[in-house]
Design a protein around this nucleic acid. Structure first.
Lengths: 148, 148
DNA sequence: TTTGTTGCAAAGGGTTTGCAGGAGA
DNA sequence: TCTCCTGCAAACCCTTTGCAACAAA
């Protein structure tokens, strides 16, 4: 069962073995931090959240790259040009919703974009094959906080 | 009338004056390159497309920042973490559609995301305030190319 | 003349690379 | 044992900053 804080899906995470990756303490630590994260984390932040002997940044980057390639994590675009990573719970196509109050994220299944976009695109001669969407807003908790 | 290659809108571009910016050859050159571009350009690419005495990268970055702030250009997120800029024709909320064949972009008005997303978000307690969307696909020309 | 801009050089800082030593299977 | 992984240091390179000279208004 998925235990990621912000995860609302019930998918089981694939094991390192399944992907042909060796199981190392560093890898497990990185995954653990990502799974316990309430918001997208930079490589530096991931390092900062580790206890004891922490792996170097190069190791973190190298592993994150693997995880992204395996579909276990995702790098979210952010305006400051610093990569931020989130653990993906669902292997299905999905998007992320990001709380602008506390930074928390959640996944949202992609129900398809709807015909309005398809038609605009078609009118320009474009054929849409995929899309990248990030929603921004306020989570339940922050909504309460701001109205109080 | 807007003369940007990929622009399908009829909006007139605001002048530098209107934004309280001085009119310098460097600025006009940057805007001209952006307007003639068929795809999002990095600062370096913008420099490369200039003839004669070209401004330094710092000048280009400084001006791009202004243009983005004024809503004249936009920095599109890209996987390689290098900023790519496009000239915005429409001041209205819009998204970009990007051809994966030739890199060409076009703007698509945002008709709203549709209720499916709103409902998913609401189910999680989120209130959506804004979103960032990029569509990927093939433009008319590239569709012909690939089927030929 | 006043104020905003540019140019140049240098610094900043996130990310990647090379390579030798070390740990997993 | 063999292969993959990590650590360290250094390189990379896009982007920003400082400051003096310069140009637009």
């Amino acid at each position: 069962m998925c235990e990621t804080t912000s995860c609302t899906h019930g998918t089981r995470h694939p094991s390192l073995r399944d992907a042909g990756l060796k199981r190392t303490p560093q890898r497990e630590a990185i995954l653990a931090v990502l799974e316990g994260a309430e918001r997208p984390l930079t490589a530096e932040e991931i390092s900062g959240r580790m206890s004891g002997r922490r792996p170097g940044l190069p190791t973190i980057y190298r592993n994150l790259e693997r995880f992204v390639r395996e579909g276990w994590a995702e790098s979210l675009p952010s305006p400051d040009q610093i990569q931020r990573f989130v653990r993906c719970c669902s292997p299905n196509p999905h998007h992320h919703i990001l709380c602008e109050g506390c930074g928390r994220t959640a996944e949202i299944d992609c129900p398809g974009l709807g015909s309005a976009f398809d038609e605009s695109a078609k009118a320009m001669g474009f054929k849409v094959t995929r899309h990248q969407l990030t929603l921004y807003g306020l989570c339940a908790e922050c909504q309460r906080g701001f109205s109080a």
